[in-house]
Amino acid sequence: MDGDIELRVDGRRRRLRVDTRTTLLDALRDGVGATAPKKGCDHGQCGACTVLLDGRRVITCLALAVAHDGAEVVTAAGLARGDRLHPVQEAFLERDALQCGFCTPGQVCSAVGVLDEVAAGHPSAVTADLTGPVELTDDEIRERMSGNLCRCGAYVTIVDAVRDGAR
């Protein structure tokens, strides 16, 4: 069975016909040609496929495309304004927060989502006071970024980059 959907991907409207079994990740990569989100584990465990879906960070490998008709998707490729990179992207470059770079688009989208969640005052598992303001400590960054794996092990500089990206 096929379904017709419309997505707004990195600011561009895209109509496509998808088999109902198609994940949002496959629709983005194969249907739209948006290859910033990566297929790592394809089982929701690595975070390489993370994008901002209607403004929130999500994994796309366990979402069915047909269920997200009308959605607004921003991938890591859509975060820049022309030649001006997003501050989080700048911070990843400045801090050398990658080696092979495969997980980086997911890391960057996740970090942008994390900073929004912190700005909204949402606590995490390591926030001491559930009702108080959230301070972006390194422990907070590590906890909140735990859904993004980096097999090269660039975690130390990723934490630095997320901290810088918040400024």
Partner: peptide, 21 residues
């Protein structure tokens, strides 16, 4: 405020990207 056990349980499950779905 009233059900910290629930907030903490939710926050200790899965990852941020999964909890958003």
């Amino acid at each position: 405020r009233d059900y910290p056990v629930l907030a903490r349980a939710l926050l200790s499950g899965a990852s941020g990207q999964i909890r958003n779905l």
